[in-house]
C-alpha cells in the first residue's frame, strides 16, 4: 500500500492519501491524474488494468486500489 500512497502523493502534494476517502468521487485527483496514476500502478505492479476496473469505487481509497491490484494479480 505504501507504493500506492507514494504514487498518489507524487500526483498531488498536501493530501494525506493514507486516510483520504473519495479520492476520485470527491475530485481530489482529476481524470488527467488518474491516467498518470494508472500508468504508474501498472508499471509498479506489472499488471494491466482493464476497463472493467475503471470505476470510481476502485480508486476512491488506497485500500480499494490495493484490493483491485490484488484481484488483477490473482486473475
Amino acid at each position: 500500500m505504501d507504493k500506492i500512497i507514494a504514487i498518489l502523493s507524487g500526483l498531488k502534494s498536501g493530501v494525506d492519501f493514507a486516510t483520504a476517502e473519495g479520492i476520485v468521487t470527491n475530485k481530489i485527483i482529476d481524470s488527467i491524474d488518474i491516467a498518470t496514476m494508472i500508468s504508474s500502478i501498472e508499471e509498479e505492479f506489472d499488471i494491466e488494468i482493464g476497463m472493467e476496473y475503471m470505476e470510481n469505487k476502485n480508486f476512491d481509497t488506497v485500500a480499494a486500489i490495493w484490493k483491485m491490484v490484488q484481484e488483477i494479480e490473482e486473475e
Binding site: 481524470s31 491516467a35 494508472i38 501498472e42 476497463m51
Partner: peptide
Amino acid sequence: FRDYVYYPITIAGWMKGLN
C-alpha cells in the same frame, strides 16, 4: 466522454505502448 472515450484511450494497448 470521460468514461467511454477518455479512459478507454488512456488504457488502450497502443497508448500504453506509446507511453
